[in-house]
Design a protein around this nucleic acid. Structure first.
Lengths: 201, 201, 201, 201
DNA sequence: TATGAATGAGAATTCATTCAT
DNA sequence: CATGAATGAATTCTCATTCAT
C-alpha cells in the first residue's frame, strides 16, 4: 500500500525494460499486456506509469535505446583498417555477435516498427537507417576499390542484413554450433555474396 | 433486415480473406479487429462467424492456404532439369516472383507465426519446413556434385531464404527497379553466396 | 452473451439517456460512472458504446437535446401578443413550468458546462445564449415602450434567469406550494424586478 | 531529499488551500486531482496529507472556512440601522462585494455541496442556512413594517440570493462595468423585486 | 445469409492514498 | 517537513463472440 522496503527507482525501471523486452519478443507488442510485464517485475500495473508515460512510449524507448547502443558499440569497436574486406569481416562479426547476444532486442526492433505511431516510427527508422548506412559504406568502398563484385550496394545491404539478422530467428546459444563456427560460416557466405576476391576457406 | 439482395456466400468469404490479409499485413494480427475486417467487407462483425469459427482460425486458414498454394505452384513450375545451378536459378526466380506478387500473404506468414496456438503453429511450421526443404535439397545436391561451395546446406538455406524474403520488405512494384532486374540481381547474389562455379555477369 | 430476447435499440437508448440524466443530476458528471448508468439501465457497461461513442459525447447529446427542446417548445408556445408585459408573463410561466418539469436536465445543463471539451462547450453555450436572448428581447422591447424600468436589459436577463432557474434547486412537486402559486409568486417578483408599471396583486 | 530549506508549514498549507480553490473552481472537485494541486504548489502529492487527512476533508475545510468567514464579516460590517430598506441595501452591497472578491470560493461552495459526504454536507448546509436567514430576517422585518411588498419572505430569499449569486457567473473585474455600477444596478433590481416603497433612481 | 443487440472479459490508464526514507 | 516509490481499486473503453430475429 505504499513504498515497499528497499525499493529503488533505477532498479525497478531496469526490471521493467528487461521484462518488457522479453515478453514483447515472445508474444509481440500488441499481445503483451502491462499486467504481464508488471507481474514479471513483481509490481502492480500502475507502477509502470511512474517510469513510462504509456505502453507505446515504453516500446519507443526500448527500440531507441537498443539502436543507439548498437551504433555506439560499432563506433567503439570498428577496426581502424581501410581494407574493405577486413572492414566487412569486422562488421559481420560485430553484427552476428550483437544480434545473438541481444537477440530479443533485435527481434523486437525488426517486428514492431508497425506498432509505433508515425512520428516514433520515423525516429526509429532513421536510427536504423544510420546502421544500414554503415554496411552500405563498406560495400561501396569495396566496389570502388575492386574488392567486391556487386550489382548494387544498397540492395546488397538489404540482402546481407536480412541474411545476417535472420540468424537470430534460429540460432540458440549452447546448440550444436559454436558462435565462432557460426560467425565463420556467415562471414564466408557474406564474402561470397559480395563477390569478394579473396574468399576464406 | 437480413440477407442483402444478390449477396453470395463464396464472394463474401473471399472478400473476408482478402480484407483480412490486407489489414493483418498492415497492422498485425493482434492489432486488427474483426470489426475493421467486417467494415472493409461491408458486413456486420457477426457475419464473419458464418465463414470462420474464430479470429484465430481465420488466421490459420489464411496461412495454410498461402503455403499450400506456394508448394503447389512450385510443383507445377519447377524445371525438369537436374542441373543444380539451373534449379537454384529457377527457385530464386519463383520465390522472388511469388513473394513480390503475394507480398502481404508472405509478410503475414512470416510475422504471425507467434499469434498461432501451438497446434496450429506446428501445422503451419511443418508446411513452411517443406518449402525450406526444397531449397535445402537443391543446395545439397549442388554441393555433392561440386557445383556449390557451401559450409552447411541447412544454414545456407536459412541465409538465402532470409535474403530473398527480405525483398518483400522494401521492393515496391512500379519503383525504379523492374522485376526482371530485381530477379537478376538476387540471382547473382544468391549464386555468389552459394559459391556457384559459374556466376552470371 | 448476445442479444437478449425482446431487446430493442430505441428503447435502450432512451433508457440510457434517462438513467444518465438522473445520475448526473444527482452526483455530477465526473462522479457518475458508466457502470452506474449501465446498472440502472440493466445492461453491461460496454453496451452504452453502441449508442454513444464516449462518456463525454453522451453528456453533449444530453445537453444539446435539452436546449433544443426548450427552444422548440418556446417557439410553439409563445403568445402572439406584442404586449411586453404579457410576453414576460408568458416567458416566466414557460420557464418555471419547463424548469420544474425537466428539473434534472436544467440542473445538469447549468452545472456541467465545465465538463465539456471547448468545442462542445461553445456549441452548448451558443444554444443557451439563444435562449437568454429571448428574454433580453422581451425586456428591451418593454423598456423601449416604457413598460419596464430597468438599468440594463442584458444584466437584468442574467438576474431574472438566475432567479427563475434557482427554483429548480428547492422546489419539489407535491410540496406545500402548488405550481400555480409558485408561478404567480415568481411572476410578481419578476414584474417588480423589471419595474413593470402594472404589477399584479 | 527531505524538507526544502526555508520551507514553512503555514505557508505550504495556505498555498494548498489557494491552489485547491482555484483548480476546483475551474474543473470541479471530482475532476481535480491531488497531483494537480500538488504540482501547482510545487510539492509531491504525499505532502498534502501532512495538512489534510483526505481530499474530501480538504474540500470541507475550504467550504467551512469560506462560510464562516462570510458570517463573521457580515457580523462586523452590518449597519446598526433598523430601517429594513437600509439593511437590505447594505446586505446587497456586502453580498455582491464578497461574491465578486471571493468569486471562486463562492462558486465552489455553490457547486460542490453534492461532493460532500452526508455529515459534511449537513454541516455546510447549516452554515449556509444561517447566511440565508440573515436575508430572510431583513425581508420579514420589512414586510411587517410595510416597507416591502412580497408574496413570501422565504421564497423571496431564494430568489434574491439566486439573482445576486448569479453575478459571479458572468461578472469580471476590469470589464466594462465598475463594481459601484454593478452594485447600484443590483440594488435597484433587488429593491424593485422586494417591492420596496422607495426605489432609488 | 445476414443483421442488430448485447455480453463479459480484459485492456490501458488514473488516482487517492500509504509509508520507508 | 517532505520526497519518492509503490499500491490497489476503480475507470473508461475495446473487442471477440453469441444469438434472437
Amino acid at each position: 500500500m505504499a513504498r515497499t522496503t528497499g525499493s529503488d527507482g533505477a532498479r525497478t525501471e531496469e526490471a521493467i525494460r528487461s521484462a518488457a523486452i522479453e515478453l514483447i519478443a515472445a508474444r509481440g507488442f500488441e499481445a503483451t499486456t502491462l499486467r504481464e510485464i508488471a507481474e514479471k517485475v513483481g509490481v502492480q500495473p500502475g507502477t509502470i506509469y511512474r517510469y513510462f508515460p504509456s505502453k507505446a512510449q515504453l516500446l519507443v524507448e526500448l527500440l531507441v535505446e537498443h539502436l543507439e547502443f548498437l551504433l555506439e558499440q560499432w563506433a567503439l569497436q570498428r577496426p581502424a583498417t581501410d581494407d574493405p574486406v577486413e572492414a566487412l569481416r569486422a562488421f559481420v562479426d560485430f553484427h552476428v555477435r550483437s544480434h545473438t547476444l541481444r537477440r530479443r532486442e533485435v527481434f523486437v526492433a525488426n517486428m514492431e516498427l508497425r506498432s509505433l505511431a508515425p512520428a516514433d516510427r520515423r525516429r526509429v527508422v532513421s536510427l536504423r537507417r544510420r546502421y544500414e548506412d554503415l554496411l552500405t559504406g563498406i560495400l561501396r568502398d569495396g566496389v570502388e576499390r575492386g574488392a567486391f563484385q556487386l550489382p548494387d550496394a544498397r540492395i546488397a545491404t538489404f540482402a546481407i542484413l536480412a541474411m545476417l539478422t535472420g540468424v537470430g530467428a534460429w540460432y540458440r546459444e549452447g546448440g550444436r554450433l559454436g558462435k565462432r563456427d557460426l560467425i565463420d560460416m556467415y562471414t564466408r557466405m557474406v564474402m561470397q555474396c559480395a563477390g569478394a576476391a579473396t574468399v576464406p576457406a
